[in-house]
Amino acid sequence: EKTLKIVADSEEEAEALAKELAEKYNLEVTIERNPEEEGKYVITIKIKP
């Protein structure tokens, strides 16, 4: 299993990107607040072998 993390500037941007990735590529995608940067969100994508 591989994990890729993407940082987005807004929750709306994160949700839109996560939804597109999940639907288009059938990936497991989660969104959470970035504890290191206020106002940023981390999109985590898990790629199963």
Rank of each mutant, 00 (worst) to 15 (best):
Ala16His: 08
Glu32Asn: 07
Glu13Ser: 07
Glu15Met: 15
Leu4Tyr: 11
Ile43Lys: 00
Lys48Leu: 12
Glu38Ile: 04
Asn26Leu: 05
Val42Arg: 02
Asn34Leu: 15
Asn26Cys: 10
Glu32Ile: 05
Glu13Gln: 10
Asn26Val: 03
Glu20Ile: 14
Thr44Met: 05
Lys19Arg: 11
Lys46Ile: 15
Ala16Pro: 00
Glu28Pro: 11
Pro49Asn: 15
Thr30Glu: 06
Ile31Tyr: 07
Tyr25Gly: 08
Thr3Glu: 09
Lys48Asn: 13
Ile31Val: 11
Ala8Gln: 02
Gly39Thr: 03
Ile47Asn: 05
Ala22Cys: 08
Thr30Trp: 10
Asp9Val: 03
Ile43Met: 02
Glu36Lys: 12
Leu27Lys: 04
Glu15Phe: 14
Ile47Gln: 06
Lys40Val: 05
Ala14Gln: 00
Ile45Phe: 02
Glu32Ser: 12
Lys40Leu: 03
Ala18Lys: 05
Ser10Thr: 11
Val42Asp: 05
Ile45Arg: 00
Val42Tyr: 05
Glu32Arg: 07
Lys24Ile: 09
Thr30Met: 11
Glu28Arg: 02
Lys24Tyr: 09
Lys24His: 08
Thr44Arg: 04
Leu17His: 02
Glu20Gly: 08
Glu11Phe: 15
Lys19Cys: 05
Ala8Gly: 02
Leu21Trp: 06
Glu28Phe: 07
Lys46Tyr: 07
Glu1Lys: 09
Glu37Met: 14
Lys46Ser: 12
Glu13Thr: 05
Glu32Asp: 11
Ile43Phe: 01
Lys46Asn: 08
Thr3Cys: 13
Lys48Phe: 13
Ala16Lys: 13
Ile47Arg: 04
Glu11Ser: 08
Asp9Phe: 11
Arg33Pro: 14
Ala8Ile: 13
Ala16Asp: 04
Leu17Thr: 03
Lys19Phe: 06
Ala8Phe: 15
Lys48Trp: 14
Glu1Ser: 07
Ala16Cys: 10
Leu17Trp: 12
Lys5Trp: 13
Asp9Gly: 12
Val7His: 14
Leu27His: 07
Lys5Met: 12
Glu1Cys: 13
Leu21Ser: 01
Pro49Met: 09
Leu17Asn: 01
Ile43Asn: 00
Leu17Pro: 00
Ala14Ile: 02
Ala22Lys: 14
Lys5Asn: 07
Ala14Glu: 00
Thr44Gly: 02
Ala16Tyr: 10
Ala22His: 11
Leu4Ile: 15
Glu15Lys: 14
Ala18Pro: 00
Ile6Gly: 01
Ala14Leu: 02
Ala8Trp: 02
Ser10Met: 01
Val42Lys: 02
Ala8Ser: 05
Ile45Ser: 01
Leu21Tyr: 11
Lys46Pro: 04
Lys48Pro: 14
Lys46Val: 13
Glu12Ile: 06
Val42Ala: 02
Glu38Ser: 05
Lys40Arg: 09
Tyr25Asp: 04
Lys46Asp: 04
Gly39Tyr: 05
Val29Ala: 06
Lys2Ser: 08
Ala14Asn: 00
Ser10Asp: 04
Tyr41Asp: 01
Glu32Ala: 11
Ile31Ser: 01
Ile43Glu: 00
Asn34Glu: 08
Glu11Val: 13
Pro49Thr: 14
Glu38Met: 04
Glu28Ala: 06
Glu12Leu: 07
Glu1His: 08
Tyr25Met: 05
Glu11Met: 15
Ala22Gln: 14
Leu4Ala: 05
Ala8Glu: 01
Glu36Asp: 15
Glu38Trp: 04
Glu36Arg: 11
Val29Glu: 00
Asn34Ser: 14
Ala16Thr: 09
Lys40Gly: 12
Glu12His: 07
Pro35Leu: 10
Asp9His: 15
Leu4Val: 14
Ser10Gly: 03
Val29Ser: 03
Thr3Asp: 08
Tyr25Ile: 02
Glu23Asp: 11
Lys5Cys: 14
Lys5Arg: 13
Glu36Tyr: 14
Arg33Glu: 11
Glu12Cys: 13
Thr3Ser: 09
Glu20Asp: 07
Ile6Met: 05
Glu20Trp: 15
Glu38Asn: 12
Ala8Arg: 05
Glu1Asn: 11
Glu28Gly: 03
Glu12Gly: 06
Asp9Trp: 11
Val29Pro: 03
Leu17Tyr: 07
Ile47Ser: 10
Lys48Asp: 10
Ala14Gly: 02
Pro35Gln: 10
Glu37Ala: 13
Lys2Asp: 10
